[in-house]
Amino acid sequence: MRAVVVNSFGGPEAVEVVETDVPEPGARQVRIKVSAAALNPVDAGVRSGGFGGAGQRIGFGWDVAGTVDAVAPGGPWSVGDQVVALHYGPVKPLGTHAEYVVVDADAVAVAPATVDAVHAATLPLNALTAAQALDRLELEPGQSLLVTGAAGAVGGYAVRLAAHRGIAVSALARETDEEFVRSLGAVGFTAGDIEAGSFDAVLDAAFLGEPALEWVRDGGAYMGVIPHAEPGSVRGVRTGAVEVSADGARLAELVRLVEDGVLTTRVAQTFSLDDAAKAHARLAEGGVRGRLVLVP
């Protein structure tokens, strides 16, 4: 099968498409024939060596939508099931940017029936990150939340999920994105100039760090999305950073929100698997709204 990998770190030119063996599922695993797989900023980090693994062949891709192709005996999934899944881990020999991928059975959920595989492939990593970050903030309905990078993939899901929970969510984004983030449920909008201590919590999807911490009230909460990179606590503010985990049951809840029209998936552009390097180059250009998706 074909798979997208990096053998030596670098820019988009380091991305390779190679022929490799089709992986076999082990106990409590399933093999998925990939229909679509999203390209995320974390893949650029893998490509450039930000997660280590020098001297190894490393595969790309965390998100997958496709069809169950092989299962271990006694598992909950059957060949032919249409599914989505998160394939966790930045340094792995094969990712979802391939014709087939093996994932843990408990990382899988039935694919949404209301969108195609290309759109479904944009859901697992970004929506799970947003949902798990919100869980850790432990906000009650009516409390105030600022989401930075609110027009991005994680930020956009965070705004919508927070609004759905009854949280008074404000969005920090470019002025040109105000209409979009308000459509997600943001009751407030800013492109900057935020008064210190304005919010019960900040979900920092834009990786601003300490400047975003200043906008949290004394005793509030800050949650980043880069593991172990959160700023230190000040003024009694609880700080942390979510490290997304594969959770098929939670992913199934997010799928239902897509089917109910609560969550909207966004695709910026599709690329063939063979054009993976071009997709990386487009991601590196910036300004992408929605996800780039690879289609084998």
Rank of each mutant, 00 (worst) to 15 (best):
W62H: 12
G220R: 03
L94C: 08
V169H: 06
E16R: 15
G219T: 10
P112Q: 06
G45F: 10
L145D: 00
A252W: 01
L128A: 05
F271Y: 14
V110P: 11
L273D: 14
P227T: 03
G10K: 05
L123G: 10
D81F: 00
V242P: 03
A249C: 04
A276G: 12
L128H: 11
D116C: 02
S35T: 05
R256L: 07
N7A: 07
D69E: 15
A249N: 06
D218T: 15
A186W: 07
G50P: 09
V91K: 13
G74Q: 09
V267R: 03
E19N: 12
A121R: 07
A72G: 15
F271Q: 11
E99I: 14
T148R: 01
V108D: 00
P227D: 11
V216W: 04
G45M: 12
D21G: 11
R165K: 13
V118N: 11
S183P: 03
L263A: 00
G26F: 08
T176N: 13
R2W: 07
P12V: 05
V5R: 04
T190K: 06
P12G: 02
H97L: 13
L125C: 04
W215M: 10
A206E: 05
G52A: 13
V84Y: 03
G220E: 04
L263F: 01
A229N: 07
V17M: 05
V115L: 02
V237T: 11
R160S: 01
G219W: 01
L251D: 08
A281S: 13
G286A: 12
R291G: 01
G197Q: 02
D106A: 10
G185I: 14
A65E: 08
G236V: 14
A191K: 13
E179Y: 04
P231Q: 09
R136V: 02
A133I: 11
M223S: 09
V159T: 09
A3I: 13
F9N: 08
I32P: 01
S245V: 15
L172K: 10
E259F: 04
D135N: 12
V293N: 00
D81P: 08
H164Q: 14
